[in-house]
Design a binder for these strands. Structure first.
Length: 497
RNA sequence: GGUACCGUGGCCGAGUGGCUAGGCAGAGCUCUGCAAAAGCUCCUACAGCAGUUCGAAUCUGCUCGGUACCUCCA
């Protein structure tokens, strides 16, 4: 069997994956800033890395998956007037910052669950790790790579670049960064324009603030990930993931900070997912073209022709390789919705069907084809998580499965061994690795519709004193675990046992 | 301006130097009381130009077009 290869953004090559500690994998993924609602673009990294997480576990690794929550606001633009995104909005909405953070964190968790994303092993918050961040900044100052200016602390990029490769991850050239002509206000505190803040002095109106050796302030954006990754995964760990837009400056800066603090490059494999675009443009707050997840699920957005379920979106995302952009459109989503339905119907039948696993098989050619298609799942996922190709093979298997189901192909055409392999591989990949599941939400809606039909029929029967029919409906539903209750007001309610 | 990346059939998308994914849509057929579903078959593309090669959508160069990052951003 092939071995897992991961495209490492740092080396720009696919590399065979070898964990630092045999049997264990440490993975850090940049989580959301909970100052607002998650949108479609946010779905991509969490679904992408959920599959990575699931696959690593499938391979038998014990994985510690750390995904942070950024709940401490950051300055909007480095060097310009510092303002805390969260506190700013809190003032407008007259809410406590933590109330806002809680609200959006809950909403984010709700969406993750809808996507069937497994929860990470540790989900640390920035505000919960101020101490660690301050500790790291102190280390950087002691090492001579950070300097205090006013009540703020900056990282000395120029000095770092003298003996380290600053810019390698993001393909930046250090001299360009130092000589950037970009005119930003309030740069005078910094020695060089490329320097980034580790700690920012809080202006008086800033609500979120903490005491520090340099006065009251708040941590710079990049330091939280370095501090929390170090704390939970160690000085060096296996995989760091996130969106491509975080490569610079966020991840570049993380490397610099951690390297100085821990005397070792923090990450062995950098993975970056590409963006979701809409009409060819990146979906993002600054472009004013976001569709929030709640809007995706409800269809309540001018650009949406209908609602799309979380599973449709998950499938849509997995149909594209994670390093390519995916362009959102109603047509593409509808296509995914239909494709997913066909796949899942075939899969559900396959899953609940019992075959004769002793049969020798009569159609060698077909048997070999199925074995090949199913075995390639492993090769494709090992090739930098090519979920698109895995799904393509599944769709080649769908007609085979449906033909067996409709008896157009006899079940014994395939050997018992192959049928078993087909069943187990499909289950492993559909459910365990890709994390696809039947549309529970959609099914629930349908179930409600069905129950209404039955309840209406029963009401009619009761009105006509047709107790036989009335009782039949109630008793047979009870047999399958649905209890009907005649409420005092004449309505009929139901619940599942 | 700097640095990358991309340009695939009606739409979405995978991809390797030769064997030409897959989904959706469309057409025909089979099955079917009707319908749906399902199955079979068809539609065969790689922005343009030049080059390397026995052979390129895949490598090189140029042209055109697009995107991302360089500032918060998944």
């Amino acid at each position: 069997m092939s071995k897992l290869k991961i495209y490492n953004s740092y080396s720009r090559e696919k590399e065979e994956f070898e964990p630092l500690v045999p049997g264990h994998v440490g993975m850090y993924v940049c989580g959301p800033t909970v100052s607002g609602e998650s949108h479609l673009g946010h779905a991509r990294p969490y679904i992408t890395f959920d599959v990575v997480y699931r696959y690593l576990m499938h391979l038998g690794y014990k994985v510690r998956y750390v995904r942070n929550i950024t709940d401490a606001g950051h300055f909007e633009e480095e060097g310009r007037e510092a303002e805390d995104k969260i506190s700013k909005k809190a003032q407008i909405e007259r809410l406590e910052p933590m109330e806002l953070v809680q609200k959006y964190t809950n909403l984010y968790h709700w969406a993750m669950e809808k996507f069937n994303n497994l929860p990470p092993s540790i989900e640390p918050t920035a505000t919960g790790h101020i101490v660690e961040q301050i500790g790291m900044i102190e280390k950087l100052i002691d090492a001579g790579y950070a300097y205090v200016a006013g009540g703020s602390v900056y990282f000395d990029v120029k000095k770092y670049a003298e003996n380290h490769d600053y810019g390698k991850l993001s393909g930046r050239i250090i001299d360009d960064l130092l000589e950037t002509t970009r005119a930003l206000e309030g740069q005078e505190e910094k020695k060089d324009k490329a320097d980034f803040a580790l700690w920012k002095e809080a202006p008086p109106e800033h609500i979120m603030r903490w005491k520090s050796p340099w006065g009251e302030g708040f941590p710079g954006w990049h330091i939280e990930c370095s501090a929390m990754a170090t704390k939970y995964l160690g000085a060096q760990f296996d995989i760091h993931g996130g969106g491509m837009d975080l490569q610079f400056p966020h991840h570049e800066s993380e490397i610099a900070q951690s390297t100085i603090c821990n005397h070792i490059a923090p990450v062995r494999y950098w993975m970056h997912n590409n963006m979701i675009t809409i009409n060819g443009k990146k979906m993002g707050k600054s472009y004013n073209n976001v569709i929030k997840l709640t809007e995706m699920f409800s269809g309540d957005h001018p650009m949406l022709e209908k609602a799309f379920s979380p599973m449709t979106i998950r499938f849509f995302i997995l149909q594209t390789h994670y390093r390519s952009t995916v362009d959102f459109s109603n047509e593409a989503l509808v296509a995914s919705e239909k494709g997913l339905k066909r796949l899942m119907e075939a899969y559900e039948w396959l899953k609940q069907t019992t075959f004769d696993h002793q049969s020798a098989g009569t159609d060698t050619e077909l048997d070999e084809k199925v074995v090949k298609l199913v075995s390639e799942f492993d090769d494709f996922i090992n090739d930098d998580f090519n979920t698109a190709k895995v799904l393509a093979n599944m769709f080649e298997l769908v007609p085979v499965i449906n033909s067996i189901k409709d008896k157009q192909i006899k079940a014994d055409a395939l050997s018992g061994q192959t049928l078993l392999l087909l069943q187990t591989q499909m289950k492993t990949y559909v459910e365990d690795i890709l994390g696809l599941q039947a549309e529970s939400a959609a099914e629930e809606d349908k179930l409600k519709g069905v129950m209404k039909v039955l309840i209406d029929l029963r009401k009619e029967a009761r009105t006509k004193k047709d107790w036989a029919t009335s009782d039949k409906i109630r008793n047979q539903l009870a047999e399958i675990g649905i209890q009907l209750k005649d409420d005092k007001d004449g309505n009929i309610s139901w619940n599942m046992q």
